[in-house]
């Protein structure tokens, strides 16, 4: 038993090292344009794995994750350009420009607080209702950007200036993003593998059972929601400092669907699955599809988004449990068939 555990840990360790080495060395091989993209991908991965905490580990299908991404992002952006509050919330307009780490952390904290408030209200709702309410929430926040466009900049968003980016140099910015991702990943990893994570899974697997063994179901759901929101906020804030601009796309449904697609392809509740899915989906959207597009005849009404949505629909209908999960299952089945004596 113990030996087996050590063995799996060893596997993970090797996998982790391969991952680290590949991506740490990437800037040396990649042209600058792709370095930028892959750096952005790390921040997207934070969004995906943080979604997995509430959905995959705790079983609450939150369709409004982008609310927290956007909250973190707008918090960070406004802390860099407080003058946008002039004429509306004047006392905030005088705020000094925050150092970048503070502004990223603040993005996470604000998102976490909203997560707490929204969680307290909505997590009383069960299953379908929770998903329904959270599906509508991004639209509310999205519209607020337009309604209060003096502050949030409406559909054009605003820019925080190159000086406020993680680093002026793209390669350095890549490493910052990488580090932010690694820190987030490690913390989330330890949480979901701790006793708290065990309780999350107990809630997911059987709420009544969890309740009967003394787990305060609602409290753990809320805790999970807050953790998930916090990291979504960190991701959103880091994205703002990475790409220098903020816009309503960070609240919007297409981003939500991208996160869902990544996680569903990778298989939920594993961290590794969504990680894998996130890498594939993000690179596909921003890179492979873009180089594929010019070869599509112009009369066909197809662009990168159309292809992604079509994939999402196909995955949703054909393999709702996740492709990666299904592949793994098949591999396991085959392995079992090959060696029937080992159980």
């Amino acid at each position: 038993m113990r030996a087996e555990m050590l063995k799996t840990d060893f596997k993970k360790l090797i996998l982790g090292i391969v991952f680290l080495v590949v991506f740490a060395a990437a800037p040396a091989f990649l042209p600058e344009a792709y370095v930028y993209l892959v750096g952005m991908m790390f921040l997207f991965l934070i969004l995906v794995i943080s979604w997995d905490v509430i959905v995959g580990y705790t079983g609450q299908v939150n369709l409004g994750h982008t609310v927290f991404v956007g909250l973190g992002a707008y918090t960070a952006a406004l802390m860099q350009v407080p003058s946008r509050f002039e004429g509306s919330v004047d006392f905030l307009a005088g705020m000094p420009q925050a150092p970048i780490p503070v502004s990223i952390l603040a993005g996470g904290i604000v998102a976490g607080f909203f997560g707490l408030a929204i969680g307290i209200i909505t997590l009383r709702l069960k299953g379908f209702y929770f998903s329904l309410v959270t599906a509508i929430l991004p639209l509310v926040f999205l519209k607020s950007v337009f309604v209060f466009s003096d502050i949030f900049g409406g559909e054009e968003g605003f820019s925080i200036g190159l000086e406020r980016s993680l680093a002026g140099d793209v390669t350095l910015r890549y490493y910052y993003a990488f580090v932010i991702f690694l820190i987030s990943f490690v913390i989330i990893y330890f949480i979901v593998n701790s006793r708290i994570g065990l309780r999350f899974r107990a809630v997911r697997d059987d709420e009544d059972l969890a309740e009967s063994i003394g787990v305060n179901v609602v409290r753990y759901k809320i805790l999970s929601f807050v953790i998930s929101s916090f990291f979504a906020g960190i991701g959103g804030a880091a994205i703002v400092h990475y790409r220098i601009t903020i816009g309503p796309d960070l609240y919007d449904i297409p981003l939500m669907l991208l996160i869902i697609l990544s996680a569903v392809i990778g298989g939920l509740g594993t961290l590794y699955g969504p990680l894998f899915g996130g890498i594939v989906i993000y690179l596909m959207k921003s890179w492979w599809l873009r180089s594929l597009l010019p070869s599509i005849p112009e009369w066909l009404p197809i662009n990168d988004d159309v292809i992604l949505y079509a994939i999402l629909i196909a995955v949703g209908v054909l393999a709702p449990e996740g492709i990666w999960g299904r592949v793994r299952e098949m591999l396991r089945e085959r392995a079992e068939a090959e060696s029937p004596q080992s159980t």
């Binding site: 369709l63 669907l257 988004d305 999402l312 709702p320």
Partner: peptide, 26 residues
């Protein structure tokens, strides 16, 4: 095919909506 899976219905219909919207935009 996915009627019983209510959350999947939300996700798939959202994706259909955005897909058609994109095609109309193009």
């Amino acid at each position: 095919r996915i009627k019983e899976h209510e959350v999947m219905v939300i996700i798939v219909t959202l994706a259909i909506a955005l897909l058609v919207e994109q095609i109309l935009i193009i």
